[in-house]
Design a protein around this nucleic acid. Structure first.
Length: 451
RNA sequence: GACCCGUUCGUCUAGUGGUUAGGACACCGCCCUUUCACGGCGGUAACACGAGUUCAAGUCUCGUACGGGUCGCCA
């Protein structure tokens, strides 16, 4: 049987890290097993669903590279893929239940009669979980009064206004779309017996279920929009690489059982399976997510790095067509974790005026004999013949020798004078990219303005 | 509150009865780089607690605690 998984977002907000990870696991499982990944839009709540939200979610999935085989924009033989367009299908399934006498009207809504029996979920992650809905549902906890109140355990499947409810449409569509594996958040584990009861009522064998642990914020509570790293579209603007985000999301709740931590999407596709999924919730760690991104940045082929970095370089007004850009990016990738950090590392190479960081200048300017040091540097570098890294280095060494100083004592001042800051890319390669003329100009400028 | 799920370094995790409990992020130290960083090496740091089963328990069982989830005419 061909594996068919689905991601079924409700277009009522942003694409959240939890949803994205669910999508990723479904995508990976389908791809790993040569199956199909279906995208279905659960927009039965007309009041809360918006097109803007849908666009954000679709864009997020596209950015992550989780392309779907069936769904909005691509079609498929089980469409339409928006639940709002599938009402006639739901009507048909409701008729089946009516015929069997399993539903009844209650204050305008339609309820499904829950059988008084145990339903056992055979979960690929959580194991066997049994529940009797009738027993469990005979009371309800009222959050305001904090008391148990009597409740009707029979589940509402249709609103008085005619709109169908999640549990019902979810099951009907999974049946209609031939979904074989339902991989979703553990928050649905307690709902699954309801779904099982519906599968039984329709006389259809349920799919394989896998409930994956939730991702929490560092405080151990539910991740909200305000938590760093919660919203997928922000990863893009903050300079993350999509594969790195996939990599980190995969790691929150799944392990390849060995020491490998850096995976491309294609590595994950090969390695991912339900057996590696954990049972316990995990807390999101933004710092590690950045580290993962940095590792991906280091491995990125030059042309891909260039393409991804361009928007950030342009925003910083760095000329992306400059012939030195490739070399500059290679310097930057060694020290940046995010694409957004690249401009600050390389900006000084392309700047017409050096921006001097006052703290850095402070550290250097008051040192004894600084004027001589910078003068020696200027003279030493002026005499360098071919402007190669090796010759620049020996030029600095010569300058050091001429004033009987250690080379190390010249590196820092040289860095500040030419780059404007104590931190940044490798000094010598930067000087090489700057060119002899510009380097000397900057040294002389620094000398006259600050010494 | 009832029911369900979970609990290994601060965090992500490896571990399926016998391990000096391993790795990664973070943190600290040393080295390298005659520069900031990268990198290399090393260090601090964990089996929630209590019983039981067993020659032997992080691994199995039960209880307790703690955390999370569900109990919608949201999904």
């Amino acid at each position: 049987m061909k594996v068919r998984t689905r991601f079924a977002p409700s277009p009522t907000g942003f694409l959240h890290i939890g949803g994205a990870r669910t999508a990723l696991y479904n995508w990976l499982y389908a791809r790993h097993h040569g199956g199909a990944f279906v995208l279905r839009v659960e927009d039965t709540d007309a009041e809360r669903s918006t097109k803007e939200s849908m666009d954000v979610i679709l864009d997020g999935l596209r950015w992550l590279g989780l392309e779907w085989d069936e769904g909005p924009g691509v079609g498929g033989e089980f469409g339409p893929y928006n639940q709002s367009e599938r009402v006639s299908i739901y009507d048909r399934y409701l008729a089946k239940l009516e015929e069997a006498g399993q539903v009844y009207e209650d204050e305008g809504a339609i309820r499904f009669r829950v059988p008084d029996k145990d339903y056992t979920v055979q979960d690929e992650v959580c194991g066997e979980v049994s529940t009797n809905l009738k027993e469990r549902g005979s009371t309800r906890f009222d959050a305001e009064t904090k008391q148990e109140v009597a409740a009707n355990p029979d589940i509402i499947i249709k609103r008085p206004n005619g709109g169908y409810i999640f549990h019902f449409v979810n099951v009907v569509d999974d049946i209609e779309m031939g979904i074989t594996h339902v991989i979703r958040g553990e928050d649905h584990l307690s709902n699954t017996p309801k779904h099982l009861a519906l599968y039984e009522a329709f006389d259809v064998a349920p799919p394989v279920f896998a409930h994956i642990p939730l991702n929490l914020n560092p405080n151990g509570t539910k991740m909200s929009k305000r938590d760093k790293g919660a919203l997928i579209h922000e990863y893009q603007s903050e300079g993350f690489i999509a594969d790195a985000v996939n990599n980190y999301m995969a790691l929150l709740g799944w392990s390849g059982k060995d020491d490998q931590e850096i995976f491309t999407l294609s590595d994950l596709k090969e390695r991912f399976d339900l057996g590696g999924v954990n049972k316990s919730n995990s807390k999101f760690d933004y710092t590690k997510c950045c580290w993962v991104n940095g590792e991906h940045l280091k491995k990125l082929p030059g042309d891909e790095l260039q393409a991804l970095a361009n928007p950030f370089l342009e925003a910083a007004e760095i000329p992306i067509k400059d012939p030195r850009i490739e070399a500059a990016l290679d310097l930057a990738r060694e020290r940046a974790q995010l694409l957004s950090e690249i401009p600050e590392v390389v900006a000084t190479i392309f700047a017409s005026e050096v921006e001097y960081d006052s703290d850095s200048v402070e550290k250097v300017v008051n040192r004894e004999g600084m004027k001589e040091v910078v003068t020696a540097l200027t003279n030493g570098l002026k005499t360098v013949g071919s402007w190669t890294e090796a010759d620049i280095k020996s030029g600095i060494a010569d300058a050091a020798a001429s004033i009987e100083a250690k080379m190390g004592a010249l590196m820092f001042p040289c860095r500040v004078a030419t780059m404007g800051s104590t931190s940044g890319a490798d000094l010598v390669p930067v000087l090489q990219l700057l060119g002899k003329e510009e380097t000397v100009k900057r040294l002389e400028g620094f000398s006259t303005n600050y010494l």
